[in-house]
Write a protein that binds this DNA or RNA. Structure first.
Length: 105
DNA sequence: TCTTTGACGATAA
DNA sequence: GTTATCGCCAAAG
């Protein structure tokens, strides 16, 4: 048996949820981590998204950190979110009060 | 194998 | 609002 890459199965779950994020809304790493049963692994969610293209293409631009800040070094993310109608506080922060995905819709 | 790093989170001051 | 510190866990060096 090959190494039990937790990340592989973990990634599938993360990406599965990321797909469900509606346009114009954003989710936090911690929120996604909690959804899949790994509330402590928010950083792993981020790691997966950073390699999301390895698994396929997903709307990873709809995922931000708990502060609503977009991924550093990826100014393009803000542009994509804006195109979907997401509310921004400034160039590097999303307004979670309006755009956070509550799943209750 | 050990140490450092990271698209993080929470709390304290 | 910012800065500091701790916790958490896997990948990379």
């Amino acid at each position: 048996m090959s190494r039990t890459r937790l990340n592989d199965d973990f990634a599938r779950q993360v990406l599965s949820v990321v797909e469900k994020i509606p346009a114009g809304s954003v989710a936090t790493y911690g929120q996604l981590a909690c959804m899949i049963g790994r509330p402590k692994n928010a950083r792993l969610v981020a790691r997966v998204l950073s390699h999301a293209e390895y698994y396929g293409h997903f709307p990873c631009h709809r995922v931000v950190n708990h502060a609503g800040r977009i991924a550093p070094g990826w100014s393009e993310q803000a542009d994509l979110l804006r195109a979907e109608g997401a509310a921004f506080k400034n160039e590097t922060h999303v307004d979670l009060r309006q755009s956070l995905w509550l799943r209750a819709d």
